[in-house]
C-alpha cells in the first residue's frame, strides 16, 4: 500500500480510466479502438489500483473466480454470435440492414455513427469482456500468489 496521496489520486483516476476503456470498446467500429485495446486499458486501471492499494485490499472485492466467469460469458457470446449467421456462412454479418446496429455509413470519408456495423459492435463488446476480465485475472493472480512481501510504507 502506497501513501495517501497516491491512493487518493488513483481513486479518482480509475473512473476516467474505466470511461476511456468502455469508450474504446463501444466505438471500436467507427473510430480507433476496439475490444482488445479497451480491455487492455481497463486491465491497466486494475493494475494501477493494485499498485496503489496492495493486493490484500483489492482481492476482497474483485474475486478471480468472478472474473473468470465474466471471461467465459464473453467467449460464449462471441461463439454464439459467430454461429448465429450460420444460415449463410460462419461469421456472416446477419444484422446488416436490420434495425439493430444495421446502419451502413455513406461511402468515403465522413462522420461515422454508432448505430452501424452489424455484428461488429456486439463482437467488440464480447471481446472486450474477455480481455478485460482475463487480463485483470492474470494481473490479480500474479500479484496475489507470486509471493514476496507487500511494500509497506
Amino acid at each position: 500500500m502506497l501513501s495517501r496521496i497516491v491512493r487518493t489520486v488513483s481513486n479518482q483516476l480509475i473512473v476516467f480510466v474505466l470511461i476511456f476503456g468502455l469508450y474504446l470498446i463501444m466505438h471500436g467500429h467507427d473510430s480507433p479502438g476496439g475490444g482488445f485495446q479497451g480491455g487492455a486499458v481497463v486491465a491497466s486501471g486494475v493494475a494501477m489500483l493494485l499498485v496503489a492499494f496492495g493486493s490484500g485490499e483489492i482481492i476482497q472485492w474483485l474475486h478471480v473466480r468472478r472474473l473468470t466467469v465474466v471471461a467465459c460469458i464473453g467467449a460464449l457470446v462471441f461463439i454464439a454470435i459467430a454461429f448465429a449467421g450460420t444460415g449463410t456462412t460462419f461469421f456472416y454479418n446477419f444484422l446488416l440492414g436490420t434495425p439493430i446496429f444495421g446502419g451502413v455509413p455513406p461511402p468515403g470519408p465522413g462522420h461515422g455513427h454508432v448505430w452501424s456495423g452489424g455484428i461488429i459492435p456486439l463482437m467488440e463488446i464480447a471481446i472486450g469482456f474477455i480481455v478485460m476480465a482475463g487480463l485483470s485475472a492474470v494481473v490479480l493472480a500474479m500479484a496475489r500468489f507470486s509471493g514476496g512481501k507487500e511494500i509497506e510504507e
Binding site: S31, F90, F91, F101, P105, G112, S116, G117
Partner: peptide, 25 residues
C-alpha cells in the same frame, strides 16, 4: 458497404478474417 463499419481494421478483424480472431480469442 460490406461490413458497415467505418474502421476498416475492425471490419477486416471481425468480418473478413473472423476465424482468425476466433483463434486469437
Amino acid at each position: 458497404q460490406e461490413t458497415g463499419s467505418n474502421n476498416v481494421v475492425a471490419g477486416v478483424l471481425l468480418d473478413y478474417r473472423g476465424l482468425d480472431t476466433l483463434g486469437e480469442v
